[in-house]
Amino acid sequence: MRESIWWTVSIACAVVMVLLLSLHMGIMHLAGLLNVLGLNLGDVRAFSAVVARGKNPVQMVVYVIFLAVALYHGLYGLRGILLEVTQNRRWEVTITGLLFLAGIAAFVYGTYVTVKTFTG
């Protein structure tokens, strides 16, 4: 498949990550600023608030999306580094395959933990 497709997806993932991380930073660390803007979220870092967010289905979906895009972006970058020092087509296919499997495994495990938190 065209490399430009993988690259474009990687950039799109970076954009999603920036958006979600901005949201995270805003909610978790810029409460004072949000207060000034008239948005009072309460004590978002209290244990009860963390547990409540864990039970929120929207939060769970956002976590899973973040997990997916971060894994893709990170593993695509790692693949780029490894392919740069690999001059053999067979190794290239092997590296891509192994990283794909590692990504799937990490995604399944991460999703399991997120869903377990939501349902547990």
């Binding site: 065209r2 490399e3 430009s4 690259w7 780029g80 392919l83 740069e84 290239e92």
Partner: peptide
């Protein structure tokens, strides 16, 4: 030209 350029060792490197 795209099949030569649009590869891991092409423009994206």
């Amino acid at each position: 030209r795209a099949p030569i350029l649009d590869t891991p060792h092409g423009v994206w490197r």
